Simulated scan of single mutants.
Amino acid sequence: MKIEELTETVTTIRRELHQIPEIGFDLPKTSAYVKKKLLEYGYEPCSVAQTGWIAVLEGKTTEAIAFRSDMDALEVVEETGMSFASQHAGRMHACGHDGHMALLLGFAKYLKSLPELKKTVVLIFQPAEEGPGGAKVIMESGILQKLNVNKIYGYHVYPDLPEGKIGLAAGPLMARNGEFNITLEGKSAHAGQPHLGNDAIVAAAHVVLAVQNILSRNLDPLEPAVVNIGTLQAGEVRNIVAGKAKLSGTIRSYDTATYLKIKERLAAICDGIKNITAVNCVLDITDFYPAVINDEKMIQLIMDSLDKETFQVIKPVMLAEDFSFYQEDMRGVFMFLGTGRSDKGWTYPLHSGRFNFDEKVLLKGIELYAHILKLENIL
């Protein structure tokens, strides 16, 4: 089978999946659609992570290499105006996971047209990438270990790259991330009698300023990191000393030691706020995904084998991806597939209600996967 013959297949799949976006692990329609296609192509999919699927194409040996797609959508209102727009109000495939599934299903169909493979290929359709992390659930199930998977590949469509361009990075590509909440509990009082209260807003202001010092004074300036406070809620009326305040933010870094240092400094700030303001400060931190660290030898093999015009070496980004859970246990490569096209207005960022792309770009992804089959001595 020629890969260009899959144009109609991937276009139809992407548009049909785009109309039924679902959230997290709760993917009944999406899961049923993917299973139906895998059965149609001659696979016997195995259920994993509640609504995910594992499809296996056995080769001459049990050594296996995996290719992964995520499946879930976002709680975003679609604004594309396309004829195949979301039919689920307030939900949209605004991160391109519909394209990822179409790409991997197209690759699944292509694989069935090949002669017997030298190694086994495992296809992973994974729920809950946007949270709370379906990759971790799959890894903890042990199914990939039982299948002898020792390498894994994955894509993310990416509007910051020109359409069809492959984005590659050796080593760090995406950040480790976590979220934090800081709750400040003071004492209300009339503004005319401030000495009778403990002002949570003043304490919150101290927190905001102190957090800025983490990056500028507590961390190695050569180690990239983000500490961002995104919300601050406090106070009830203008003439009352606020008794409560709440801040929320995010932490991101490629380096584990740096990430842990940020957590340590946040805890120290909260302890200090209690002492200087008499306002109780409660810190709650939730760790999410590890950093995406690409195997340097695997990346170099790809770079050395491709025409330089087809790919771009990219800088790491402070976005996060649960593909990293696979990479904790096996060698892996995560790549960006460029979808940016200014003449069509397809430059809106991921998670935007206007994010869109041309399905033909998915064929570029399948072409590279087919090329990787040769690099990995699977054909």
Rank of each mutant, 00 (worst) to 15 (best):
I3L: 07
I3D: 09
E4Q: 12
T7I: 01
V10Y: 05
T11Q: 10
T12K: 15
Q19I: 02
Q19E: 04
I20T: 04
D26P: 02
K36W: 08
V56G: 11
A64Q: 03
I65F: 03
F67V: 03
D70W: 02
G81N: 15
S83Y: 07
D98P: 13
L104P: 00
G106R: 09
K112E: 02
E116L: 13
L117S: 09
K119R: 14
G134D: 09
A135C: 06
A135L: 11
V137F: 04
I138R: 11
N150K: 12
N150L: 06
Y153T: 05
G164M: 05
L168F: 08
P194N: 11
A210I: 01
Q212T: 10
L215Y: 02
S216Q: 13
V227Y: 13
N228E: 14
I229W: 12
A234Q: 02
E236P: 02
A242K: 00
A245R: 06
K246V: 14
G249S: 08
I251S: 09
R252K: 11
Y259C: 05
L260A: 08
K263I: 07
L266K: 03
D271Q: 12
K274F: 00
D284A: 13
I285P: 01
E296R: 10
K308D: 14
L319N: 13
Y326T: 12
E328V: 09
F334G: 03
F336R: 10
L337Y: 07
W346A: 08
Y348K: 09
P349N: 13
E359H: 12
A370N: 15
K374W: 06
K374F: 05
I378T: 05
